[in-house]
Design a binder for these strands. Structure first.
Lengths: 231, 231
DNA sequence: GATTAGATCAATAAAAAAGTTGTCGCAGTT
DNA sequence: AACTGCGACAACTTTTTTATTGATCTAATC
């Protein structure tokens, strides 16, 4: 037992994340007091679409995917959630239910911060609020992109989008493709699993990508972009 | 679209569960107003140990298991959650985090009722409160039993307990054993998976049970009880 | 110091899930 | 009416999980 070190560790944990750096000691204390830390195992839901939400989640480490649940067979993947990002913010300021689900792709150390703590810090600390707005804004942009993709592009463009998106995360998370099944890729592109399989093969044949088991290497980035644009 | 039928259905749903029968129309309305309904798929977490809880869950249909999470490998199963039962009540009156996890063994239609609605109904309606107390009490009894088992019994007694418990649910849910892996059985008994496998085989050899794939038939109920008592 | 209860490990078998491929059909377009 | 884009189904293969078994290893008990 090393209680001193442990509390050090906890302190470190709060302060370390860039997004909490700007808080005053009292504000940090407010957040710390109303938070609880949870280990989500690979496959666990961080949020469940439709469930009540009295808190937001802040991912310390690990990766998760965020998606909307449709009927029993069909999900649509929205994004990969990375360390340092919030999940479930939408539940804080408006609805009090989560409007999407998210599940851990790897074990995730997460802390949960109660609604009240976040809203009151936002009210006190403009810089923090500004940051929060920025996050919402980014998410919005992504939602618009998603919408555009779904509305206007067809298979080739969609899977190209997906490849480019996931590949953009690969620098920081080299194992990212390994964590995604073909169904996941399909759910990002909003097409059937079988179509995803076929398209990936055909992209490989055309020399756009290389398939190594589950890992995918983007070879011709430019052409993929082209396909994405063409739709 | 048949909106009238749909609201009928919803109404039916509230009123149908015995535990809500005793509510006055206004009280029922209070509950109805603050509830949301969620479909949990097989494998989904209904509650996650350690997460904030601003609501309790009421299972309409489907089965789930409730367990405590230990270190990464070791869970301990507490009970099977059946339709008509609450999950997460403990979070309502005392702690505001769930002190156990639970996951759906089959798809589960569940509704979530916010804390405030439950507490205020309990304060108004003594009969409902009484019922709630009864539920807590039962759960307590079960926890004591679990504790006793873990503290004092050894493998044979533990797995006998598990078999008797699960078998007692079989009348209402004939498929129950199919839904549980050997690891689940082991986690109920608090022993290793391998030990569970070996014990089940040996019980089969002794004619106490029959193993048909995943299904288990209790042949000698009396003797199992005996083993459970002996410990 | 020997015995016992049980966990842990490693090897294998069996079952389930995920991935792959070809064929077909349907709804829009041309 | 022919064509295109894509999902749905079926059959099959591969990979991943789960189950099973035997062989140690360990700590507690006699």
């Amino acid at each position: 037992m090393k209680p001193i070190l442990e509390t050090d560790q906890e302190f470190f944990c709060d302060i370390q994340a860039p997004c909490f750096q700007m808080l005053s000691p009292e504000e940090a204390e407010l957040v710390r007091a109303s938070k609880t830390q949870v280990l989500f195992r690979k496959g666990d839901h961080l949020t469940k679409q439709g469930a009540f939400a009295s808190y937001a989640l802040f991912v310390i480490n690990g990766l998760a995917k965020q998606y909307i649940e449709g009927d029993s067979t069909k999900n649509f993947n929205l994004r990969i959630i990375k360390p340092g990002e919030f999940v479930g913010l939408s539940a804080i300021f408006t609805k009090n239910t989560f409007n999407y689900s998210s599940v851990a792709l790897t074990d995730c150390q997460v802390f949960l911060v109660e609604k009240e703590a976040i809203t009151s810090v936002v009210k006190q600390n403009g810089q923090f609020g500004f940051n929060m707005i920025k996050r919402y804004c980014e998410q919005n942009t992504n939602l618009f992109d998603n919408l555009r993709t779904v509305l206007y592009k067809q298979m080739n463009g969609r899977i190209a989008d997906t490849l480019l998106y996931v590949d953009s995360l690969k620098a920081e998370n080299p194992e990212i493709f390994q964590l995604l099944s073909r169904k996941d890729m399909a759910d990002f592109a909003g097409i059937s699993t079988e179509s995803a399989v076929k398209l990936l093969k055909s992209f490989e044949k055309d020399g756009l990508i290389e398939l190594h088991e589950k890992d995918i290497v983007v070879v011709n980035h430019k052409e993929l972009l082209e396909i994405s644009k063409k739709g």
